[in-house]
Write a protein that binds this DNA or RNA. Structure first.
Lengths: 331, 331
DNA sequence: TTGTATGCGTTATCAA
DNA sequence: TTGATAACGCATACAA
């Protein structure tokens, strides 16, 4: 057999009209139980499954949301998973469009638009805010992982996450908590603010230096602490990679982690969970972020009830994952 | 404006028939330069872009290949990139279907089949060989990263890769090369065979113990070497993660890498390239694998020339990436 | 070179 | 509850 069976084939075999087959396949009212049964069997027998293209062509709604993501980013994988499940629950299909070294974001977007997606979920978009705003005028857009003026956004509450992290260290009895800042990275300003707020609330003095996003930078920061002979009780790094660099240098220098110095990361990247690393860190609620993004999008698409007129900025609080890189202050 | 402009809109605006617009948009012969120009401008002005669904519905060929991949696997991202570029070159579109914790492979496959993909690229499929063989009878399938009887496969030449690795170590002057085996992991048998072959060719004795796939297992293997007080000149681990575990334990024990012991990995995972790790390793040729997969698929789809009747098993040789974890034998 | 008519597989409208 | 028919947006065979 070459040609895939069509709805008409099912109709012929079941001896009913095409309209009835359509009704049965869509599970809507308008067919008797007996024909329903007959059609189902006929479809089964010849291995029929509806052609979504033809279906969407005919219907005005495509019930399709497009999603861009960076294939290389591990965190995006979690979000993709979450969007899939949220979309299914809401009765939408998802079409993926990856951003890769040879396929930039405008390209990824174009294919989604061409596919007549009704709404877009942009994970970690790098597009200029202006471009995003323009896009959002054409089609409902939710940006995940970033905040953009005038566009719906869903992201982690970095301030709250940092506060949670500091509170964890305070509860362990630490007072000298050294924070390694992330500079201009997304979320860095917020995390720094959270650190400052929590430290101030506990009436503990600030201890801040530039950290960075990579192991190398974390390693450099740790080396400087060692040079100054000025080790804190705890180090709170902007992200896991930076924290890993810190741990690496400390351990090679014979400093025990966490007995002498606790180290706290941010992101819960896959590396953090590895047995011999076991980094305590803050996990972003990817499932929650994804669900929130889809719900907001569908809210606007289905126009049910009070989809807020202006752009929203939805925020989820990261959760603390306690592993073995933090411990109570030693006596 | 709510409705997206259609081909008919362009025809009206340009004052020509719909057929002509179709001809112009597809860049085929059959229209004068003047109308071509006029149509293009009209399309531009109203922001028209063809609806791929309607197009594919009408044509018998969809020129669509489906691709499953594991969103969480970093190596798959490289393959996705490669398939994208290869497909574009060959005039095919690609539709992605991710395998995630909440979306298993059968599900991912179903959507691709429903979308009327003409061929499938399955990256790292976990499906039973029987299921794959059945699938391959319905639609052209290429499995990447794995070998399956009766199904087209594209994968790295693990034997050759291991040989390359051993030869690198031999050239550095090492004779006692300890290989950590990957057990039942895909490719492990081949890599072990390559090690044996290369070592035998150099008339050096084998030195093999179970390694494993993770840092933890690599760490255990290294610990055992230390316990026995029997350090080799070089360790060749089944993969990068295992190699990392080895390095970690050696360094913490005060053994200098690579001065005292060279460590060689396999895969060139992102971790390997990190500055403070700098693991020498073998990189799989993701672009080459992806291109080979697409070429084989298109070969069968377009039926041009001698697409081999039976299943093929295409293999690409990994390349050595020399970093700082291997060094010449010290005097 | 240009236009007309028909069909792709489905759903929606309407009448029976 | 059923069935005939038009329409979705586009491409193709054929006629002009």
């Amino acid at each position: 057999m070459q040609r895939r069976p069509t709805l008409a084939d099912v109709a012929d075999r079941a001896g009913v009209s095409r309209a009835l087959v359509s009704i049965v396949m869509r599970d809507v009212a308008g067919a008797s139980d007996s024909t329903r049964e007959r059609v189902r069997r006929a479809a089964e027998e010849i291995g029929y499954s509806p052609d979504p293209r033809a279906r969407r062509l005919r219907q005005h709604r495509t019930k399709l949301v497009g999603m861009t993501f960076a294939a290389a980013q591990e965190f995006h994988a979690d979000l993709v998973d979450g969007v899939y499940v949220a979309a299914e629950k809401l009765g939408y299909d998802v079409v993926l469009s990856a951003v890769t070294p040879h396929r930039d974001e405008p390209r990824a977007l174009r294919t989604l638009l061409d596919d007549r997606c009704e709404g877009l979920v942009l994970i970690g978009s790098q597009l200029p805010a202006r471009r995003l705003a323009e896009l959002a005028e054409r089609v409902p857009v939710v940006v995940v992982t970033r905040r953009v003026r005038g566009v719906d956004a869903v992201r982690s509450d970095d301030v709250a996450g940092a506060v949670t992290g500091v509170e964890h260290l305070l509860e362990l009895g630490h007072r000298r908590i050294h924070y390694l800042d992330g500079g201009r990275a997304p979320g860095a300003a917020e995390r720094l603010r959270g650190y400052r707020r929590a430290v101030a609330a506990a009436q503990v003095s600030e201890l801040i230096s530039p950290g960075g996003l990579t192991e190398r930078e974390g390693a450099a920061a740790a080396a400087e602490m060692l040079d100054r002979g000025d080790l804190p009780e705890a180090v709170f790094a902007f992200n896991d990679r930076c924290a890993l660099g810190v741990m690496d240098v400390l351990i090679r220098a014979g400093v025990q982690v966490p007995q002498q110095v606790s180290v706290l990361g941010f992101d819960d990247s896959p590396l953090a969970g590895l047995a011999h690393i076991a980094l305590t860190t803050l996990r972003q609620d990817s499932a929650g972020l994804a669900a929130a993004a889809m719900e907001r999008l569908v809210d606007r698409l289905d126009g049910t009830g009070g989809a807020a007129a202006g752009a929203v900025d939805i925020v989820r609080v990261p959760t603390l994952v306690v592993r073995s890189s933090t411990a109570p202050r030693s006596a």
